[in-house]
Amino acid sequence: MDRAVAVPVHKLLESPTSRAIQIHDWTVTVSTNPISNAQDCDDLHRALGFPLPEMTFGSNFLSLEHGPSKWKYDFSTADALHGVKNGELGPGDGGVKVGYADAWLRSRTNPSSSLPMPKTVPTKPYDWTYTTTYAGHPGIWTPPEIDDGGSEAGSRPTTPIVEDPPQPWSWVPADADNPAHVIPLAELTRPDPILFYAEVPLFEDELHDNGSSHLLVRVRVMPTCIFILARFTLRVDGVLFRTHDTRMYHSFASSPPLIVRETSGWEAPYDRVKGALPRRDDLTPLTDATFIAKVLTGMPRQASQVDGANTGWRGLGTKVEVAVLR
């Protein structure tokens, strides 16, 4: 294998709230910020109709742009949360209750209970685990600002440039016989220099100490490719683990430009993953998304991608799609 990969010309940009890389025809931009303030939380809460995760990084995003085709693809917090079920959970939504819910309810509804059920109003149902199969969304292309070389007062108004509209595109199922339609692990494990790296948390919630739910997007731009992993990880203590991954890969060598997107979901009962701990008394790995994913993906497919934790969650399984940019 060639050890020294040629590093293409690229430009790194930085502003107080964002970082970007321009390489070949591509721009990758990330923005990482504090959690949303009360006003932004209220607005998003109203738009979604359910309480927000404890840590909602409402202004964070990752965006991927391809200049020639005016193609844009984004990962953002609000859109990810729009993928969370609002309302009564039905078949396929994979709804769960906390481990002690049945005992809790029994203790309240038992006629001899010393803790009778108080007058309560119905709770507006939503998926309190914030499970989402969000795999990013098509962004709206905005032409780059023309730099006319100065911003002095009285500078000439720039003439709007008439541009062709972006070309329509869509995801199509990958062709199993086409070697370009897979994410090449060999290339991605090669220790080429990482030109650009970012971790963009979108949301995180500890489920009131009943577990943890979070969605983290990572990107690395390599001399030969762009690779993105958006990973949703859920732990409900005593109940289950769930992972949903979206991987996007683009090889700079592909022509016309090709994007490969792989989406996968896994799930397993809590004790099954706990049984894989290296040391029984140290539960720390159960808070590590990488450890959880390793255990879930290492299980037989039937167990973690078909049976799961018997919740009937529709996110189980793996799907590979491609998009060709013109």
């Binding site: 809790w104 007058k119 309560t120 109003v121 309190w128 009131h208």
Partner: peptide, 28 residues
């Protein structure tokens, strides 16, 4: 997990409600 002592350390206000509501988590 249960009862008034748990409620004092666990419960949260809900500005959209008037009364008590059971959390969508199934407890609390």
């Amino acid at each position: 997990h249960d009862g008034p002592m748990a409620d004092l350390v666990w419960s949260d206000p809900d500005p959209e409600k008037e009364d008590f509501a059971i959390s969508p988590r199934g407890a609390g």
